[in-house]
Structures are given as C-alpha cells and as structure tokens.
Design a protein around this nucleic acid. Structure first.
Ligand code: MN
Ligand code: MN
Ligand code: MN
Ligand code: MN
Lengths: 220, 220
DNA sequence: TTTATATTTTAGTCATGACTAAAAACGAAA
DNA sequence: TTTCGTTTTTAGTCATGACTAAAATATAAA
C-alpha cells in the first residue's frame, strides 16, 4: 500500500514521538508536532490504521506497527541523505536544510536514493549528527549524552544536536560548537545548572543548562 | 501568487503546446498532453485564468501570459537542471531521468536551484539537448534541424532529440546516436524517406524517416 | 460514585483536482 | 440559415486533507 506525502509526514512524526515505536502516542501530541488540529489528526489516524502502519484504538493512543516503523525509517533515511547532499555538495549551512529535505524526502524513486547514497559515499550520519538508517531500516545509533549530564573535567566530542531549529544551530555556529568539536567541561554552576565548556582546546564558552541539554556528545 | 504542483504541470504543458507562447492551445490538446479528461482541463483553466498566468476565453483556446511564460520557464529550468544532475552526478541513463525530474521540478527553494546550477557548473543544455533557461527565463536556443531534412553528404552534430521517451532513447543508445555524435548523411531513399547515416566516422546506420525526424542536429 | 475537566472523535464544511454524464456553444456543411 | 458533429463547459460526485463546532469518552477530583 502506498502512502501519500501527508501520510508519510504523520507517520514520521508518530515514529519520532513514540521514540522509535517504544511508547504509544496521543492525538494531541501529534497535533502539536504537526501543527494541525486534533480533529484533523483523528481523520488521519483512521486512514493510517486502515493501511496498517499504526494500531489505532479510539480514545487511546496509537502504536506504530512493524510495517509502519519500516516505512517511517525509509522516509527518515531519505530526509537525512538529502540533508547530507545539501550540506556536503551544495554548501548549505546546517540550519538551512531541514525545510527543503522535508520536501525532497517524498520523491518516489528507489534508484534515486540508492544512487544518492553511493554519490555521498554511504554517509552514516546527517549534518545534525543523527544516524542514517540503511536501506533495510537498520540504524547504528551511537551512545551519546546531553553535555549537561557530563561531569566536570570530562572530555568528549559533540556528535549531534537534539534541537535542529535554525535559531539554535546558528547560535552553535557562533560559539564554534559544531559537530565533531572536541569539548571539555570546565565548570558546572550548581545554582542554575549552567556550564563552562572548553571547545577545541582553545575557546571557553558559557552555556545555560537548556542549551547544553540540546547538545549531545560521546565521552572519551 | 503561488502555483500548486498540478498548476505548474498544466502551465508547463500549455507552454510547450503553444510553442513558447506563440500559438493558442485547445482544451482537448491539453487533456491529451496531461492524460486527463477535457472536463478536468476546463476546471483548471478557470483557476489558471484567475491567477493570470493564462488568458482564458471560454470555448476559444487559451493563451499564456507573460507572467505565465516566466513561471513555465522557471519550472522547465528546474526540470532540466535536475536531469543534468541525475545523469552527470548520479549516473542515470538519459532515458531514466524524466519521471524523477517531473517530481523534483516542484521543490520550492530558489536557493536550492541556484546552488544546484553552480554545482553542475552552469550547464546550458539538458541530457536530451534541450536548452536550460537562465534564472530570468532567457533561453539560448541553437539553430537545429531534424536530420531527415539534411542533404546527402552534409555533415553535422547531434544536439538534441524531439522524442524523449525511454524506448526511443534506448534505441539511440543501441545505434550510438548520442548527443554530441558527429554524423554525415550518406544516402537518402526517395521512396520512404529513410536515411543512411555515418556516425562518428566509423559506423554506418540505417534509420526510418520517422526516427530521423526526431533527431536534431546542427550543420557544419 | 458522581461530577468536572481535559482529551478525543464526529458532523458538517471547504478547497483541490480528478471523474462521468449531460448540456451548451462553436463552426462547417447542407 | 438551419442542421449536425465536434469541442467545450457545467453539474454533480468522489477522495484527500484541512478546518470549526458539537458531541462523546476518559480520567481525575470531589
Ligand atoms: Mn516531509
Ligand atoms: Mn537532520
Ligand atoms: Mn512535474
Ligand atoms: Mn529533458
């Protein structure tokens, strides 16, 4: 069964909100994520239920099915491959790619994605550090923690961001906290949870707990 | 005023059928080109008329407006740039690109097209030899004639094809009549208009008048 | 256990873009 | 100028995906 563009977008949202199929998801949460009204979501849930990509029990949340998970991961794969293309080949900034990828991910052509993957040399992560599922939907996730959970004097490397909004990404550009940057926690303020971070062994920056919670690192 | 994907497709069809705005176009012809019913075309013409990209007088044909011409050329530009990308970068065969480009041409992002153009090194022609309009809609067309109109012993170079169907393009691949091939008309058969053509100074091939009429060359 | 509140679904509407069947208009031939 | 065949438009319907307002259900509080 084929999915429409709208159905693919909903399914992707449900996949993300359910934490990859682990939790069930509410109508209101989907409405908030999709910036639509709950009534519209109810309509769509019936359709997705009919197509058996979600399990839908009225008034209780929805759960994504195995088939649905597979479909969602295909769309996520396409989204992230296009993001790599835009940044690596067309010199887009990492805060400029999301909206365009949101359109490109719906182009229907398995050959296109296969060739794009090869052209990009089979990237494993997108410009925001998120893993790119392979064509079977397998994801090699890296163990990673928000840097506000790191201890003082611990070192690591920024590998991803939780928030991909343009505003947040531009802030990270400004302070030099790009993906791949080596960091060390110099200090943590008990009172408000803010941190002092050494970036690339040369620049010390302060950030709020809120900001730090959206930056993910692997420890070393 | 923004155009929907469907509106862009119709406008492009009208542009082509009108020979770049030179002739007016009938409802039935548009229906044939779009593989829809005349009734659906009537609906769409009213919408395109409201948006002032065509001039629509009921029961008489439609004429594309200057604004409509500009919009159609933008879409054609995007279509052809994507075709170049697919062939040059992703190693698609020239008979595999049309359908995918038909989807990609509707992605809304001026920045994307600008960057793609640069990435492809500002190509002037698509894989089928058709000229790529610049961002202002200007087209540098080459003077070209169907090779069945060439005289015996005349030489030239294949620069484009009229028919971009996969079947025709695969036939051309088979006989080596690719874009850029140097050709010489060895013989023309009066009776059925078929030709004998020398390709790249080494291979002699026969082709019907029908085939030859779909191959365009510049004379030299 | 009843009530109140929040959540969710249904009913009814709208826009887009397709279709069929029927009506209307055009244009050429009689 | 009337008729006839072709072209085109209109009327009515359907599917998709959105909306508002109202009804239904679930759940937490009294
Ligand atoms: Mn999308
Ligand atoms: Mn991303
Ligand atoms: Mn198209
Ligand atoms: Mn082409």
């Amino acid at each position: 069964m084929n999915l429409t563009t709208a159905e693919e977008n909903y399914l992707k949202a449900i996949y993300h909100l359910s934490d990859g199929g682990k939790k069930s998801v509410s109508t209101n949460d989907i409405a908030a994520e999709m910036k639509t009204k709950p009534a519209s979501v109810s309509d769509m849930l019936r359709k997705l239920g009919d197509k058996e990509v979600i399990e839908y029990r009225k008034y209780y949340g929805v759960n994504i099915t195995e088939e649905g998970k597979k479909r969602a991961l295909q769309t996520i794969r396409k989204h992230r491959l296009w993001e790599v293309f835009l940044v690596d080949k067309l010199n887009f900034a990492w805060d400029e790619v999301h909206e365009v990828a949101e359109e490109l991910e719906h182009i229907q052509s398995p050959l296109l994605i296969q060739r794009l993957d090869a052209f990009l040399d089979y990237p494993k992560f997108d410009p925001h550090g998120d893993p790119i599922p392979d064509e079977y939907g397998d994801v090699r996730a890296r163990p990673r923690i928000p840097i506000n959970e790191m201890e003082i004097d611990q070192s690591g490397q920024i590998v991803a961001v939780k928030d991909s909004s343009a505003a947040f990404l531009r802030y990270l550009d400004k302070v030099g906290a790009y993906i791949g940057a080596r960091i060390k926690v110099l200090d943590k303020v008990e009172f408000d949870g803010s941190l002092e971070i050494l970036v690339d062994q040369k620049k010390s920056i302060f950030m709020s707990k809120d900001v730090a919670g959206n930056i993910l690192a692997i420890q070393s």
